[in-house]
Design a protein around this nucleic acid. Structure first.
Lengths: 189, 189
DNA sequence: CACAAAACCGAGGGTGTCCTCGACTTTGTA
DNA sequence: TACAAAGTCGAGGACACCCTCGGTTTTGTG
């Protein structure tokens, strides 16, 4: 019995939408610890209204990121669709890191600089599930070192998050070097 | 003509020392943006006294880290002393990252999460000089990929800083994987 | 010992952010 | 249209941190 989502009044719906847009923009530019007051201002709404809609910062995260993280599902699907398991693996990483590089908030969230809660958590574990498959496939094909696990992926992700923070362009080369370390079999592409 | 360093009064010298100890401890545990008030409190000294000795946060950094970074010079010297250029390179990295892992403040400083100033800067450029030699040597021996530069090292350093932050134990394995990617020649040790 | 210079203290003003709450405004409906 | 419910507003209290400054204490020296 999913609680009946009472319809919002017209102005409330309008403001909610404006808040979500503003939040996505501000978090994307300034990171997840951007002041909520900036978001309210950018939405053209008072801080009180922001709190009326989203009582906590986490509520805002939960309203924004799950949708955005759907992109991650698509990336994973593409990766698994690739007939070449290694190329799929690489595509997946590039996809994830591209998302991170495009949105500082997402970068913070994924790299767990901020403890995430509720809906975020579940989306992430789903992502881990995908990653697990992609890794297993590449490993079984003998293209990925046999001892590589999702834990390694998590570490790599947080490493790259920092690379993005300090040198937004640098992550591709960094990834290439790292991949040379985890790859097995054919040395190229 | 180095300005004559006026002798401090006995109590002043005592407090200065207590402040430096406290600062090292607090920065080490909480990072470089720890509140100065905590440091004063831990030193058993008033906040005013802290400011009397160190007018800015940077002044405190400059008083603490250059000494600590001398360890880095030793690490570099050891690396260059190793007859095996590759092993020297690896030793160097392990030494640097061990320092970072032991001190959260140092980790912040090295990974430039905080813009560093004055004395710090010079120590770092000296470190880069050492790194340059170590890298060149390993490259010339054909043990390090030919296109590896200090820039790659800087990126790796910032990446590892984040790994240390999120998984203090994880950096060794991460480094091993990465080294497999940048190594050339003999595949082992 | 006395006294001036040196050093110390911590209350307090400034700033930025969080979050609340009571007064006001808008909306939908009868 | 009129009214209650829903929603909005923003001033302001709380908090954490920054940094200063005038009054007090300590130290060294004549």
């Amino acid at each position: 019995m999913p609680a009946p989502p009472k319809p919002l009044r017209a102005d409330a719906a309008r403001n909610r939408a404006k808040l979500l847009d503003a939040a996505a923009e501000v978090f994307g530019a300034r990171g997840l610890d951007a002041p909520l007051e900036h978001i309210a201002k950018r939405a053209g709404v008072s801080i009180g209204t922001l709190y009326a809609h989203f009582p906590t910062r986490d509520a805002l995260f939960d309203a924004i990121f799950p949708e955005r993280l759907a992109a991650l599902d698509r990336v994973a699907a593409d990766a698994l669709a690739d007939p070449d398991p290694w190329r799929g693996f690489v595509t997946f990483l590039e996809g994830v890191f591209t998302l991170q590089a495009e949105d500082r908030g997402l970068n913070d969230a994924i790299s767990r600089r901020v403890p995430l809660s509720g809906a975020m958590e579940s989306v992430c574990t789903r992502g881990v599930g995908h990653a697990d498959k992609i890794i297993a496939r590449a490993r079984e094909a003998g293209r990925l070192r046999a001892d590589f696990t999702v834990a390694d992926l998590a570490v790599l992700t947080s490493a790259v998050s920092q690379v993005i923070r300090t040198a937004p362009q640098g992550w591709r080369r960094f990834l290439r070097l790292h991949l040379d370390g985890v790859r097995r079999g054919a040395p190229d592409q």
